[in-house]
Write a protein that binds this DNA or RNA. Structure first.
Lengths: 191, 191
DNA sequence: CGCAGGTGAGACATTGATGTCTCATTGTGG
DNA sequence: CCACAATGAGACATCAATGTCTCACCTGCG
């Protein structure tokens, strides 16, 4: 019994700390362990009891980001309907995690990129979506799926930062990212 | 006379140091002053004589990046021909500075963004290009010029990082960035 | 009541980067 | 050849963040 209660309480605290840390690091990626602790309303000592160090915290945030992306991919039902609509659903579903993704995207430039199995799985699922769109004749084939995946991450991070600075309105996130990725800046004569 | 020689020698050294620093920081944005000095083939003391500190170095790199962007904007002749072609010329001209821009783009998330007059001027020039394209009926009007400018920076940085990790070939830089920004992922029925 | 686990506060040593300083060396121009 | 200016090498103090530790507190539960 005591073990059950213990586990549950730890899980709740851990999740709360992670979410506030994500929110803070999204705004200030160089925030100190002390600042993270204060933001979460706990002491630095307790923060250290939950996460062995800054690396452990960032790795936990990475896991959280991966999990939220996986959830967004699931919710977007990438296999259903046209690839374009799947992309729009994906961008829409991923918006709540955009800030966290932007932080992780910036951090990932420091690590050895592409080594993590979680990211590889995400890349593969997104890449498969673009491949499907290409095979269906819906997407152009001169832009590689790898680049489209990379560009999607980049546009999400760019838009998250632009929102943070007030240059893009939050309600426009999905439209700005999805429509630029899908249709680009040029007008469509046909539509 | 001695003053003239002095100035010229300093200028040459300074430029060489800046370029190697840019190349290093592009790959490892957390590189130490010591690493920067070693990369430039000078001692840390000399590096400090040229740049008062890390902040001064980064600010000098920022000036260099701005200057290279301005040069690219000039070379691209944004006022000539269609806006699409101007964008393609711009991306092509800006490629040599892509790594440095990617570094600065990542760093800028730490500063108070949009405060620098140099960046504001660049943003204005790029924004004007997108406005011209919209007014000519060439670009869609539901994507704001501010977002298109932001997206251009983001795609340049993303592609620079993807090239660094070997996910995109350097020769494809212009095509990947410009075509995605202009035309997006969807196939064009008309073309 | 008493206690055990979790916590907050804070002291402490450690580490890594930074900025400053000195001194010997070099090499270039006068 | 001499003098000067710049450099390289390294010692040194400083500073900020980190990780570890102790101790007091409180809170719930037996």
């Amino acid at each position: 019994m005591s073990h059950l209660r213990y586990s549950r309480l730890m899980a709740v605290d851990r999740d709360h700390v992670l979410r506030t840390a994500a929110a803070l690091l999204t705004r200030k990626s160089t925030a100190t362990m002390d600042e993270v602790a204060k933001a979460a309303g706990i002491s630095r000592a307790t923060l250290h009891r939950h996460f062995a160090g800054r690396d452990a915290l960032v790795r936990a945030l990475e896991s959280l980001g991966i999990a939220e992306c996986e959830a967004a991919l699931d919710a977007a039902r990438l296999d259903e309907g046209s690839a374009s609509e799947a992309v729009r659903r994906l961008v829409s579903e991923i918006q709540p995690a955009a800030g966290l993704l932007a932080f992780l995207y910036g951090e990932s430039q420091l690590w050895e990129a592409g080594q993590d199995a979680g990211w590889q799985r995400l890349d593969a699922r997104m890449g498969a979506l673009f491949v499907r769109g290409q095979q269906a004749g819906e997407f152009r084939i001169d832009l590689t799926p790898v680049w489209l995946t990379e560009a999607l991450y980049g546009l999400i991070a760019s838009c998250a930062w632009a929102m943070h600075d007030g240059r893009v309105a939050p309600k426009d996130f999905t439209h700005m990212v999805a429509e630029l990725l899908l249709g680009g800046a040029l007008r469509r004569e046909e539509s």
